[in-house]
């Protein structure tokens, strides 16, 4: 398995290509905007995209889907049945499925958006906007914030410390680092100060 990342200037989002070195098939994680740069990136790697994993359907992560599907015959995996007019293969929490010869586990982590999914492939965690290096995803309410942290604690932070976090924005991290340095776990004391 080989993983490549592409930095999309649209929304400053990360696009990932996960290649199966045996079959030469590839999974695209969150196609962002489909630009010449992204096309060059995909074509330059020598893999054929056969699957797309959508962590959540915010525009700057999925706008490239329509064009990508006109070029490549790929199945789209998402927690939604449809994204725009695109039909998706729906994934559910804790579901394990196979794409491009790779085993993938879907972990539902609502909070940043109701449809947020973290995909685990071996020790790689594609966290979308649910978890970034040093930060948890932005939420619209305190309820959403609590829900997201609870889901991350139960399903993501319980992974091995050496699991690699590949987020939708910003640099990569590991579960061990996120447990220690993520600002999302800081609590506010009654005196207004924060503690880790």
């Amino acid at each position: 398995m080989t993983v490549f990342f592409h930095y999309s200037l649209y929304g400053f989002a990360n696009v990932y290509l996960v290649g199966n070195d045996d079959t030469k098939e590839a999974i695209i994680v969150d196609p962002a905007a489909f630009t010449i740069g992204l096309l060059d990136f995909i074509e330059g790697k020598g893999y054929t995209p056969k699957a797309v994993l959508v962590t959540h359907s915010h525009a700057h992560h999925v706008d490239g889907l329509r064009t990508l599907l006109r070029i490549y015959d790929a199945e789209v995996y998402s927690s939604n049945a449809m994204i725009g007019e695109i039909q998706c293969r729906t994934v559910r929490d804790a579901e394990v499925f196979s794409a491009c010869g790779l085993e993938i586990e879907a972990l539902s982590v609502p909070g940043h958006s109701p449809d947020s999914i973290v995909y685990r492939i071996e020790k790689l965690l594609f966290t979308g906007d649910a978890l970034h290096a040093g930060l948890v995803g932005k939420t619209a309410s305190q309820y959403g914030s609590r829900l997201l942290k609870e889901q991350l604690s139960k399903k993501v932070l319980n992974q091995d410390d050496d699991c690699i976090v590949l987020p939708g924005h910003g640099p990569p991290s590991t579960i061990g680092a996120e447990k220690l340095y993520n600002l999302g776990w800081r609590t506010v004391r009654s005196d207004g100060l924060t503690r880790s």
């Binding site: 640099p171 990569p172 991290s173 061990g176 680092a177 340095y181 993520n182």
Partner: peptide
């Protein structure tokens, strides 16, 4: 796109480097 999170650096030089999209948290 590298991670140095939680590293301890003593007497280290990163001068004149391209350190784009890296994690130095902690």
């Amino acid at each position: 796109f590298c991670s140095f999170a939680g590293a301890r650096f003593l007497n280290i030089s990163f001068e004149h480097s391209e350190l784009v999209h890296n994690n130095f948290d902690g």
